[in-house]
């Protein structure tokens, strides 16, 4: 297992290098520069600005010096926010986004697994249809719709919860977590239902049933481990996606997270910020994919042998 993990981590180095290179090229060929604005920027000012951020150098030179900085852990200064470094900005949003992502994941796993397992216990009955219909609604209800709807109900009409903010007013973390988690809960519900159905039809479950074990024991002790493999495979990319995709929720609730930086950086053509956030998310994706693969191996004995064997 350790060798497997180390190998994957080694593979991450060329992956990151390719990501940086491709992003660098993409970013620099996108139309509109970081300093273009509504009001015309005088030529002299533009030149002064570009000189300050080394944008007047040939592209390959910029690339080399950027790579050098990144290797030393310095992602450079933000173009949009003078005086702020990319490191500083990412750090300022990371904690918030991670916290939001964790709560959302908790919501998603709780609701998703329980709904999926419940549905799989009596397929094609009301106990199946109701949670699965709800899951379907959850999937087709995009967060840009669910968010405002929840705010309207719980923030404005019932006045139970704050309509925006993060760590500013008590209770302001609830609606964002639910909004972000619901879509994922729906996916998890469907995946876990499918996985459970598969497992429940296997021979060892039938054996367990024949032995007269209680349904609860069968599910929790025997079926769950195998039935959740598809969910686990989904969790890795989902968690990375949760962190990167929290943009909509962060905007709706004015949460100072990374998702907003990631998207705004693209709109602002804040080159270093785009690169910084991309590299950051790439690292996250690699890590989470690795984690979820390791978890899948751990959950699936056959794969475990295979990994050991290779």
């Amino acid at each position: 297992m350790l060798r497997f993990a180390l190998g994957r981590l080694l593979q991450a180095i060329p992956v990151l290098l390719v990501v940086i290179t491709m992003t660098f090229m993409l970013v620099h060929s996108a139309p509109g520069g970081p300093f273009s604005a509504d009001k015309a920027v005088p030529e002299e000012v533009l030149e002064a600005l570009e000189a300050q951020y080394n944008l007047d150098q040939p592209l390959w030179q910029q690339y080399i010096s950027y790579l050098g900085d990144v290797l030393q852990g310095d992602m450079g200064p933000s173009f949009k926010y003078p005086g702020r470094s990319v490191n500083e900005l990412i750090l300022s949003g990371l904690g918030t986004t991670a916290e939001l992502g964790m709560y959302a994941m908790m919501v998603a796993i709780f609701i998703g697994v329980i709904a999926g397992v419940t549905a799989s216990m009596r397929p094609n009955t009301a106990q199946d249809y109701v949670p699965m219909t709800a899951a379907m609604i959850g999937i087709c209800m995009p967060s840009f719709l669910l968010g405002p709807l929840l705010v309207l109900i719980f923030g404005i009409h019932l006045e139970w919860l704050p309509v925006s903010g993060w760590n500013q007013i008590p209770g302001d973390k609830i609606l964002p977590a639910i909004t972000l988690g619901t879509g994922y809960a729906a996916y998890i519900a469907r995946l876990s239902r499918g996985g459970m159905l598969e497992v429940l039809s296997q021979d060892y479950i039938r054996t367990a049933r024949a032995k007269g074990l209680s349904e609860f024991l069968i599910i929790s002790k025997h079926a769950l481990r195998g039935g959740l493999i598809p969910v686990v495979a989904f969790l890795g990319p989902a968690f990375a996606g949760l962190l990167g995709g929290s943009f909509v929720v962060e905007t709706i609730y004015q949460i100072p997270g990374l998702g907003r930086f990631y998207v705004q950086a693209a709109f602002n053509r804040d080159y270093t910020m785009i690169l910084g956030t991309t590299v950051f998310f790439a690292t996250l994706i690699i890590l989470f994919n690795l984690l979820s693969d390791m978890l899948a191996v751990w959950l699936n004995p056959k794969l475990r042998q295979q990994v050991r064997g290779e």
């Binding site: 919501v107 709780f110 609701i111 709904a115 419940t118 949670p131 709800a134 809960a185």
Partner: peptide, 20 residues
């Protein structure tokens, strides 16, 4: 609204919400 009807998921959500 979030997950509708099944009792278990209701309990789960309450747990999560109370955490938050």
């Amino acid at each position: 609204i979030a997950s509708s009807s099944t009792l278990i998921s209701a309990i789960a959500l309450c747990l999560v919400s109370s955490l938050l």
